[in-house]
Nucleic acid binder design. Structure first.
Lengths: 204, 204
DNA sequence: CTATAGTGAACGAACGTTCGTTCTTGATCC
DNA sequence: GGATCAAGAACGAACGTTCGTTCACTATAG
């Protein structure tokens, strides 16, 4: 075999990075193979030595992101693993912020898949979300309930709602570029939302 | 002037509708002018009698949607106008559901704008959201606070958080095709979220 | 020697836009 | 009130460019 293994790996990663940079800013159909090749510093024909077609290149990028996103060492997975009291809601909010920052490109590519292709990726990613939350949290939530730390609202649904709110807030900020949606900084926004989920709007 | 006014209006709306159908399913760069013309039952050249360029056609669609979306008679605007107690949170949730259903195409086009073009539309739409919420709600929230119907959480931030959660939930369901995110139907999902925002997760 | 990375010209199809032309219609004239 | 006129709707061929993909070919490492 020719071309030392590390230089081949280098080429592949340069192609990947160039494709990510372009797909996230111009979309799928708005990005040409020639443009990817030029950005990656690679010939047009060589792209097809590494990926059979443009769609395969796009799919392989999504797959790689998905593997990293669903790994057990992401900020959100760690925050979920460490969750053991309602005082940890802020930590989930902050983990959501870091997730959106770290995976901003992935999120954009998911939108690309939704609006330009079939959008199957997000359905695979979020299907059965409730079940996964139950597997992750049911034991600890039961412990908290026995300790009298939980009210009467469905805690699994409440945690999903909280995570959704955190995520969408930072999605707005980071991916859509809508700054200071609440008129305050990130930490204060997380605090406002966490307090809302913990205390509710009704007086106590 | 030629070509009876109503038939011209007909042509224009057929072009608009065809462009919406195609842009929402294939994206901006994935949709060709020929395809729009054929779907609308109009010649290619005639497209340019009504819109100077492809980008102008896209922009005019976004503008028309924006006008309808920000009108005072949408489900959400009515729900906001009718809001006068925490028992109305479910109505805001249901109005959010109807908004996403009615404006699903608009939402998809906003994603298209973000992913394939500059994405300026959403920043214009959501900039200063906090200020607008304050203008809409501050008076009634003050009334509720005097009546002792509100706790210590910032009610404006809480209402924004609630609306964001409602919207993103139905966005998932309707725009992304992720069904039954909470494992329950729409009404039950709204009830779960509304109760969370009203009561909070802590015991009372 | 062989297998593969790497190259860039070449292919046909599709792209957005322009163009000359015809058709339709409401207004203007006598 | 029928003939005349001009504005713009409607058409489809054609332009130059770019698209994704293929292919014949070279270079190089095992």
């Amino acid at each position: 075999m020719p071309a030392s293994a590390e230089s081949v790996a280098d080429t592949r990663s340069r192609i990947h990075q160039a494709a990510i940079d372009l797909f996230t800013t111009q979309g799928y159909h708005g990005t040409g193979m020639r443009e990817i090749a030029k950005t990656a510093g690679v010939s047009l024909g060589n792209l097809y030595n590494h990926h059979a077609a443009k769609e395969d290149l796009f799919a392989s990028i999504l797959d790689e992101f998905e593997a990293r996103y669903t790994a057990p060492d992401t900020p959100l997975a760690r925050a979920f693993a460490d969750f053991e009291s309602l005082d940890d809601l802020e930590a989930i909010g902050d983990a959501s912020r870091r997730m959106v920052a770290e995976f901003a490109d992935y999120i954009r590519l998911i939108y690309v898949d939704v609006v330009e292709l079939e959008g199957g990726h997000i359905r695979r990613l979020f299907g059965g979300m409730r079940r996964r939350y139950e597997e992750v949290f049911s034991e600890r939530l039961e412990t908290m309930r026995r300790r009298g730390e939980l009210g009467r609202v469905d805690p699994v649904a409440a945690l999903m709602t909280a995570t959704i709110a955190f995520f969408y807030y930072f999605n707005m900020e980071r991916v859509f570029g809508v700054r200071r949606l609440f008129g305050v900084g990130d930490a204060e926004a997380v605090a406002l939302m966490a307090r809302t989920f913990r205390e509710g709007m009704r007086p106590r």
